[in-house]
Amino acid sequence: MSEPLVVLTDVNKHFGPLHVLRDINLTIGKGEVVVLIGPSGSGKSTLCRTINRLETFESGSITIDGKPLPEEGKELANLRADVGMVFQSFNLFAHKTILENVTLGPIKVRKVPKAQADKRAMELLERVGVAHQAEKHPAQLSGGQQQRVAIARSLAMDPKVMLFDEPTSALDPEMINEVLDVMVQLAKSGMTMIVVTHEMGFARKAADRVVFLADGQIVEEATPEEFFSNPKSDRAKDFLSKILTH
């Protein structure tokens, strides 16, 4: 494996009495694309969110590029700038235009001059195919377009790693592919990606590794071919039989 970028060691978390993450050990290398799958409630979204500390955890450690996650504050903000995050519900800033959504981080966090930030943002919007919508507000765009803008917004920070928390779950079926296409293209460009998804097609096409979670534990890790054709654990077999029968 390539040089490790994100390392989780014995991470544990509870939501009240519910033990959502149990002794999670996971290492993600530079340029690797890892897909987290599992039944709902398995802790895969929580795991994704702990990596940029939108969720806290109780024990264990998470390091990104060798640095442990700091406490809430300036330092954590700096670290989050290097970790892109794409949400299920897009979460674009509703009062800003598409262009302003993409340039906010570079201008305020990276202190890039506005003209330069605008230019870079337009290139990114071009790349995700929504450049002609730059002056509109998020509510005027379709879900698929909004999600592609959200990806551009993350990319504008030049992140070391990108987290995707079920990026296509809130989309109408005909818009899923336009978002997945952007993600596949991103994976090919060498971006390190951690993707929580139910899109098995994406996992097959773009993932280097599939991590299967159930009840807050990593049950199985394998290459996509291996995992889909020859799952080892009963939980994984059961899960795959449920989602692949239709």
Partner: peptide, 22 residues
């Protein structure tokens, strides 16, 4: 304001003060 917007603001590296202002 949906809670996700505050999360999105934090996840692009804005500090608490910046997320409030912007």
């Amino acid at each position: 304001i949906p809670a996700g917007q505050a999360e999105a603001a934090r996840s692009i590296g804005l500090t608490f003060g910046q997320s409030l202002r912007e």
